[in-house]
Simulated assay, not measured.
Amino acid sequence: MTFELNDDVVARVAALPSVREAAVAGARLVALWPLTEAMHMDNDAKYAENLQVRVTRAFARIVTGEDVTVPDAEYVYEGADSIPGRPQRIVDALLAANDAYDAMSGFSESGDATLVDEAAESLGVAWNDAASVRVHEVLESVEAAVNDGAFDEGAYAVPSGEGLSADGSAPADDAFRPSDALAEALAHRFAVALIVCDALLDAVADGDAPSSNDAVRAALPLLLVVNELREQIAVPRIFLGDDQIRGLLDVRAKAADPAGVSEGTTVDAVAAYIAPLAAAEWAKHREDVLWDPALAKKKAKEEDEKRNKEALAAKFAHVKDDPNKETVEL
């Protein structure tokens, strides 16, 4: 059956408390754009690089089943094709994950569904013909909606710079609270990405245990393409670690199984699982963009001085003032 976005389902998912809460975090992040300060743009570029390192490390841990370290992932991201003292299979898995990540990066601009095949090939994932057809049907349906301008108006339309704040504060302020209109738009767009993610995972589910290595690997190219879809429809990318990817497949399988412990549809399970992770990632992204090394150094110094004063006060807390002590004028 051809996949189609259902407005009623989108609205229902967008109204879920966890999705709305995540949308507020996402709105706090996207309200910063367009970035104008060089420091913020540099910080955002570093975040993007770090995100690729984190994602490729998680993928390599799944592919190899080994403890792939952050330095491993950083070395390969920076161009290494071997690491002294580390198994070559780890390096090869990281190289493949980076190839897949790079291949998929063009999707947010082109919407070319064939890029998911390139990513799958890089990761050594071979879906059966029926699964591949379903994956393409889902992606092509969503791209048709994008090209038809479905996200340019109505519930999906992201407000202009005016009225982004609910309280008059600037987007970079710590206490910034986004307007209801901006949060609502993010919730609808985020809901679309969650529904597409669920549909893609369903497309490649073939009866294997969700925690099996084949099932988990089959999902990896899909997580990449959904992240790029988020970027395409103005929703920030997210991150799932290797354990979180397995957890996502587990909770979805339980929701699909009448004997499972989860209740509701699979998309509800996907939304409930991913939304808190997205909220945390978007809060981290915003913090990373706004990070000011000089201010951070100043705050750290102030905290150290405060702790030192508290420690000194505690050390001499037992010493009582002598009421007969002569007052000395300075």
Rank of each mutant, 00 (worst) to 15 (best):
F3R: 00
A15K: 07
L16Y: 05
S18A: 10
V19P: 01
V19W: 01
L29P: 01
V30S: 08
W33V: 10
H40S: 05
E49R: 12
N50V: 07
V53A: 05
F59S: 04
V70N: 12
P71Y: 08
G85D: 12
I90M: 09
A93H: 01
G106N: 10
G106K: 09
F107R: 09
D112P: 05
L115R: 15
A119L: 03
L123P: 02
L123A: 07
N128W: 06
D129H: 04
A131Q: 13
V133C: 02
S141E: 12
A145C: 06
A145F: 00
G149D: 13
P159V: 14
G161T: 13
L164T: 06
S165G: 10
D167H: 04
P171G: 05
D173F: 02
S179T: 06
A187S: 13
A187F: 01
C197Y: 05
L200G: 08
A215H: 05
A218K: 15
L220H: 02
I233F: 00
R237K: 14
L240R: 02
I245R: 04
R246T: 10
L248T: 07
L249R: 08
L249I: 05
L249F: 02
R252E: 15
A255M: 09
P258L: 10
G264V: 12
G264D: 12
T265R: 09
T265Y: 01
T266M: 07
V267L: 07
A269P: 04
A269Q: 07
Y273A: 09
A275E: 15
W282N: 04
K284V: 03
R286F: 05
E287F: 03
D288P: 00
L290H: 07
A294T: 15
K299W: 09
K301Y: 08
D304A: 12
E305Y: 10
E310Q: 15
E310F: 07
L312N: 11
K320A: 15
N324V: 04
K325E: 15
